[in-house]
Design a protein around this nucleic acid. Structure first.
Lengths: 120, 120
DNA sequence: CGGGATCCACCCGGATACTG
DNA sequence: CAGTATCCGGGTGGATCCCG
């Protein structure tokens, strides 16, 4: 059965009203940097510095802020090792992988059509 | 075969660098109001006033601006009728429906898990 | 009814400097 | 290396008025 807005509402209630939990989560994961950080982590664990280089153009402040939000929502797991110099690794949680399973087809489609969309 | 970031890059090139077309399109469709407007139109054509009521909390300025962007990208079709009082209808294009086909599963999952995500 | 134009407040997010 | 603290400019987006 095809998913529709009506069906989503029938199953989950009125989930897109102002200030509702759904909108909050959408703001976190569909934010400018949220998408790109999640995407960068889909192919495996990355260290802070690798993540910073992978997500082209992100500032340290926004990387920190984005990671804290995604960790607080349970999409990303942070593991820090008691070493000198310090080492911190970030990875998707099971919940994060569930999310990206649904997000990747969308990213794939956008990546394949972006040029045509902006050109025409 | 499972979609991955590596596979997306292998097929479409380096599509998530700063300022690339993919990021621009993502900014349009994943923006705070872009998602909600597209979502509102998935169940059929809506008039300006209906759209404004459907997308809870949106201002007239942002609705107009969002619709112009989505129309310019070819996701939304605008049809105006030469009547008094004026009537304008908005609907998804084929490209818009292709997009939402990939976006709806994500929305469905978020709607179903948002409360747990913010609660835990 | 369906917008456009203008003004302005707020806050997101960048730059820089500093620390464990 | 992996962040935090502070400052501050610009753009997003709301409010208001107006028009066809």
């Amino acid at each position: 059965m095809q998913v529709s807005l009506g069906r989503i509402r029938a199953q989950h209630g009125d989930v897109f009203t102002d200030g509702c939990p759904t909108r909050t989560v959408l703001d976190h994961i569909l934010s400018k940097w949220g998408v790109l950080v999640l995407l960068a982590l889909t192919d495996g664990t990355l260290r802070w510095g690798e993540l910073r280089r992978e997500v082209d153009g992100i500032s340290e402040k926004m990387l920190a802020s984005t990671l804290r939000t995604l960790e607080s929502d349970g999409f990303v797991h942070r593991r820090s090792y008691p070493e000198v110099p310090p080492r911190v690794e970030y990875a998707l949680t099971d919940r994060g992988r569930e999310l990206m399973e649904r997000m990747l087809p969308l990213m794939d489609w956008v990546a394949g059509n972006a040029t045509v969309i902006l050109g025409g």
